[in-house]
């Protein structure tokens, strides 16, 4: 039986929180300082360089807004997957996770179109400080979306078989965090012009 070969840390909860979940919270905590450091650096440069206002005016609010809508909706799917898993319905949880994954995929497609247009207009990562931050911040965020999608597909496969249903909540917590990062990237890069 696989449950007998599981490491002790997977099943115990010495802190009152299942260890796996606690680990995800630690990941989220570390990510706060990773993204936080990046965004704080962006804010101080933006405030210290009046000329960035003009650079920032070329981002497209509609692309950013559409992507915010997509991520918020995918977050809803993730929490509905968690809801289904809590009720022991692995198949339903897997379906919602696939929906979440589709949201991530649409997000990346919109981003690809957006970046292609911008690069064709000459707004490349080396154009100036603003565009360097723009591609770095949104790029690292997009990598998190890709990683989340891959993990989600693995967990959806397990959930479909009714295995490891607690993991549905764990990937959900991570996904909501990625959503929250975008919630701040959106006004920073698209709205405050």
């Amino acid at each position: 039986m696989s449950s007998m070969t599981k490491p002790i840390a997977t099943t115990r909860s010495a802190t009152g929180i299942p260890t796996g979940k606690l680990a995800v919270w630690w990941v989220v905590g570390s990510e706060i300082v990773i993204f936080g450091g990046l965004l704080a650096s962006y804010v101080m440069h933006r405030l210290g360089h009046p000329e960035w206002a003009e650079y920032a005016s070329h981002t497209n609010t509609w692309f950013g807004g559409a992507n915010t809508f997509v991520l918020l909706t995918s977050s809803l799917f993730a929490v509905l997957a968690h809801h289904a898993a809590e009720h022991g319905d692995g198949k339903k949880a897997a379906k919602w996770l696939l929906g979440t994954c589709a949201g991530g995929f649409i997000f990346l497609c919109i981003k690809a179109v957006e970046w292609t247009i911008e690069i064709q207009h000459g707004y490349t990562i080396t154009a100036n400080g603003f565009w360097s931050f723009y591609y770095t911040a949104a790029g690292i965020h997009a990598l998190h979306v890709i990683a989340g999608c891959i993990i989600m597909l693995i967990i959806a496969r397990q959930a479909w078989k009714g295995k490891e249903l607690q993991r549905v909540e764990l990937i959900g917590i991570y996904w909501h965090f990625v959503d929250i990062v975008w919630i701040f990237l959106f006004p920073l890069l698209y709205i405050a012009k």
């Binding site: 570390s30 706060i32 936080g36 450091g37 704080a40 650096s41 804010v43 101080m44």
Partner: peptide, 19 residues
């Protein structure tokens, strides 16, 4: 999580004047 946000603000306060 709030502690991590505080560390972020601390970083901002320390570096922002220079930038």
């Amino acid at each position: 999580l709030a502690t991590m946000l505080m560390l972020m603000l601390l970083f901002f306060a320390g570096v922002a004047p220079d930038v």
